[in-house]
């Protein structure tokens, strides 16, 4: 597989480490009411789509960027690659 790194261009998948569903970015507020249930859902409940899937890849033997890769799980076609940092910021994550 080839992943088109937004900063470094096409890179072989061997350079990356896979984590999983990009919803791991959406970490709940630990100090809010119902945090236990929210964390349980955050950590354990995942969609497993046959089709488009947004997932986290880490450029471990490269520049150490975490990426959000949009991949079709049926064909492995990759349609979008973003810096996870940009995705997190766009979702309103900050400090």
């Amino acid at each position: 597989m080839i992943i088109h790194h937004p900063l470094l261009g096409p890179r072989d998948a061997q350079e990356f480490t896979y984590l999983g569903d990009a919803t791991l970015i959406d970490r709940p507020d630990a100090m809010a009411e119902g945090a236990l249930e929210a964390f349980d859902a955050y950590l354990h409940l995942r969609d497993n789509p046959a089709g488009t899937h947004r997932e986290l890849w880490y450029h471990e033997v490269g520049d150490r960027s975490w990426l959000v890769v949009t991949r079709d799980t049926r064909t492995h076609e990759i349609t979008q690659v973003e810096l996870a940092r940009d995705v997190a910021l766009s979702k309103g994550r900050g400090r």
């Binding site: 480490t17 791991l24 970015i25 471990e60 975490w66 940092r85 997190a88 994550r93």
Partner: peptide, 19 residues
């Protein structure tokens, strides 16, 4: 050493990109 570094980068880039 390697997994912890990966974990910290995840926290820095994905969880708290504003820090």
């Amino acid at each position: 050493a390697v997994p912890v570094f990966r974990h910290l980068e995840f926290a820095r880039q994905c969880l708290w990109p504003g820090l």
